[in-house]
């Protein structure tokens, strides 16, 4: 499928605006905790093959939105789909199998598995993962193929030398890299990154950014939550601003910095802690 890099050039910077080729579409999504609306998104489309940043003050509902569309939480109302396939009531593991993979704000490396084992767990094709396969064998070939794929990915993310170490012994930044590399083992169409830069040292930040833009070049759609506006300006094609659970603005990065509503949202209210 060819991706037009300028597809969003003519799209108006209005909340809920329709995109030429949306891969994710959200409608009327609501989730409240004890009477407080954590997420209340009327309509949102994510353009295929772009990097879309999700920004907003603490407690704006960004992570909750991620949890909802990736199947980790259930909404009170609403529907959403991936490439035309409805995802309501679909459990998290099936969402991942359908090609939408997420990472977590607090990295979830599988500490007492080696880095290579972490990569293998993300493989979707290994017949040895079923009970029958495990008992009767015949999974070596798939295992070797996955090892090959994983080796290439680890190479790309500079983790080759750590392949046989326990993931728990990696540094914070390396864990972030591992999580992205591991997500790519799934061969996703959409990859959702929850604050991939948080806690990563500046040197590694540049390399991570480079990797993220690389994902777009490989034809993937990237949705990511980020706080650092410089980062957002640098790599996003489109920015969605959430406040109190709703989309208050969206548009190309250049249009967001000057948006009055966004400035109000960031400065004009007391900050709450992000609901995790």
């Amino acid at each position: 499928m060819t991706i037009d890099p300028n597809a969003l050039a003519d799209v108006a910077a209005v909340p809920g605006v329709a995109k030429p080729d949306p891969i994710v579409t959200i409608d009327g999504l609501e989730r409240s905790f004890g009477g407080v609306h954590a997420v209340n998104v009327d309509h949102l489309e994510i353009q295929r093959g772009t990097i879309t940043s999700l920004i907003g003050p603490n407690g704006a509902g960004k992570t909750t939105l991620f949890n909802l569309i990736s199947g980790f939480d259930e909404p009170d109302n609403g529907e959403w789909d991936l490439d035309g396939g409805g995802l309501v009531g679909i459990s998290a593991y099936q969402v991942a199998r359908r090609g939408m993979v997420r990472t977590f704000q607090l990295t979830k490396s599988l500490a007492r598995l080696t880095v290579m084992e972490n990569m293998h767990v993300a493989d979707q094709t290994n017949p040895g993962e079923t009970l029958r396969g495990a008992l009767f064998g015949g999974w070596r070939k798939a295992e070797d193929e996955a090892t090959e794929k994983a080796t290439a990915l680890l190479e790309r993310f500079g983790l080759t030398h750590m392949a046989d170490e326990f993931a728990g012994s990696l540094s914070g930044g390396q864990r972030k890299l591992l999580e992205v590399a591991r997500a790519l083992m799934v061969d996703p169409d959409v990859i959702m990154l929850d604050e991939p830069m948080a806690g990563v040292n500046p040197a590694l930040t540049q390399s991570l950014l480079h990797h993220i833009t690389g994902l777009r070049e490989d034809g993937m759609t990237v949705i990511f939550i980020e706080h650092d506006m410089d980062v957002v300006q640098e790599i996003s094609d489109w920015v969605v601003v959430l406040a109190e659970g709703s989309v208050i603005a969206e548009g190309p990065p250049a249009s967001i910095g000057s948006n009055e509503i966004v400035i109000d949202a960031y400065l004009g209210r007391t900050h709450r802690e992000e609901e995790e």
């Binding site: 990736s70 980790f72 459990s91 998290a92 593991y93 099936q94 991942a96 199998r97 993979v101 997420r102 990472t103 977590f104 979830k108 490396s109 599988l110 500490a111 007492r112 598995l113 084992e117 972490n118 293998h120 767990v121 993300a122 979707q124 290994n126 040895g128 993962e129 079923t130 009970l131 396969g133 495990a134 999974w139 295992e143 591991r182 997500a183 083992m185 799934v186």
Partner: peptide, 24 residues
């Protein structure tokens, strides 16, 4: 086997296993 590896992954962090397409 790979089956056992998934089991250990679930022991470490079941949400991570779920996010990687495993029917925890």
């Amino acid at each position: 086997s790979p089956w056992g590896r998934v089991m250990r992954a679930i022991r470490e962090d079941e949400d991570a296993a779920r996010s990687l397409g495993k029917n925890v």
